[in-house]
Amino acid sequence: MSDEAAAPLSGGALTRSRILDAAAALMTNVGLAHTTTKQIAKEAGCSEAALYKHFRSKEEIFVRVLHERVPQFSEALAELPERAGDDRGPAGHLREVALAALRFYRRSFPIAASLFASPELLATHRRKLDELGGVGPQNAAQHLAAYLAAEQELGRVAATADPYAAANLLIGACFHRAFLDLFFGGEMPAGAVRPASEEEFAAETVRALLGGVGV
């Protein structure tokens, strides 16, 4: 790691980082709808005016929290189609995708849940995503389907498989598992989720998927 990369944040960069940390904590604990820029500024140890020097709105802060304070998912998938045909193979890449999806949904659910309680807030969020160039939840399935289609062209995924259906199956399984993890929290009933560990979940889910679309 370079000295520049290792250097601690200072000045405006430090303030911005503290704002995002504070926003992530508040949005997780009290929900997006009940989090205000005044609360975020207070938690970050800065003025609300300082907050608005870095972000134009609460919605922009929310989007940046998802991009910078939540384990990344769709961005990593954007490069996946270029890796079709490499030695890692579909099984290795899909396990990686499953783990990334599970961790992303588990972290982002508590932050984003309140979006769906407010049609106005949800509409504002969609507009913000459009302003950022079409970023959105649909990207993950699109990127994953493109990767599977590329592997299909190479003969490593069955010619009869539907790449979009396969992508939706994998992402849907991860979404559901993350929901169960959060729903039960530390009181998970015995046998409620199988396999129990996330690594085994990723491996077995991919094994089942490739049993249907593999060559």
Rank of each mutant, 00 (worst) to 15 (best):
G136D: 05
L154S: 04
L170T: 09
D162K: 07
A165G: 11
A178Q: 01
F183C: 01
A161L: 05
E198K: 08
G133R: 10
R156I: 06
G85D: 05
N139K: 07
Y164G: 00
V135N: 00
I111T: 04
A141P: 05
A146P: 02
P195Y: 09
E82D: 14
G85H: 08
G133M: 12
L115F: 10
A178C: 09
A166P: 03
F116C: 00
P189Q: 12
F116D: 10
N139I: 02
R83G: 02
E82G: 10
L122C: 06
L170K: 06
G186Y: 01
G92M: 07
R127L: 13
Q142T: 15
D162T: 01
H125Q: 13
A166R: 00
I171K: 03
F179R: 13
D86H: 07
R106K: 14
L169I: 15
S108M: 07
L80H: 06
L102S: 05
A98R: 02
Y105L: 07
A145D: 04
G134W: 02
L80F: 06
S108Q: 15
Y105K: 10
D86I: 09
E199G: 09
P119E: 07
E120Q: 14
L154G: 06
E131I: 06
A91G: 00
A98H: 02
F184P: 00
I171Y: 01
G136S: 07
A158V: 01
V97F: 04
D86S: 10
A173Q: 11
V135R: 08
L169M: 12
E198M: 00
A113L: 12
E199I: 12
A173L: 13
L94V: 11
L144K: 03
E187N: 12
A165C: 04
H125S: 14
E82V: 07
D181R: 11
R103V: 09
K128T: 13
L129V: 06
V193Y: 06
Q152M: 10
A161T: 10
A141D: 13
A167R: 02
S114Y: 05
M188N: 00
G185T: 06
S114F: 01
R106C: 03
A101G: 11
A165M: 12
E151D: 08
E131V: 14
A117G: 12
L144P: 02
A149S: 15
R106D: 10
R126V: 14
P81I: 06
P90S: 08
A161H: 07
P195C: 08
A101D: 10
F179N: 08
A159T: 08
S197D: 13
F109Q: 11
P137K: 09
Q152Y: 04
Q152I: 08
Y105R: 13
A166C: 11
G155R: 12
L180M: 14
P163S: 05
G92K: 06
S118H: 12
A98V: 09
E199P: 02
A159G: 09
F104T: 05
A150R: 12
R103N: 13
F175N: 15
S118A: 12
S197P: 09
V157F: 06
H93P: 07
A149W: 03
R95N: 13
A166W: 00
A101C: 13
Y105F: 15
L121H: 03
A161D: 08
P81V: 09
L99M: 14
N139H: 05
E151P: 00
P137T: 10
A145F: 01
G172A: 12
Q142G: 14
A112L: 15
P189A: 12
P110F: 04
V193K: 06
H176E: 15
G136R: 07
L94K: 02
R177P: 03
G89A: 04
A149Q: 15
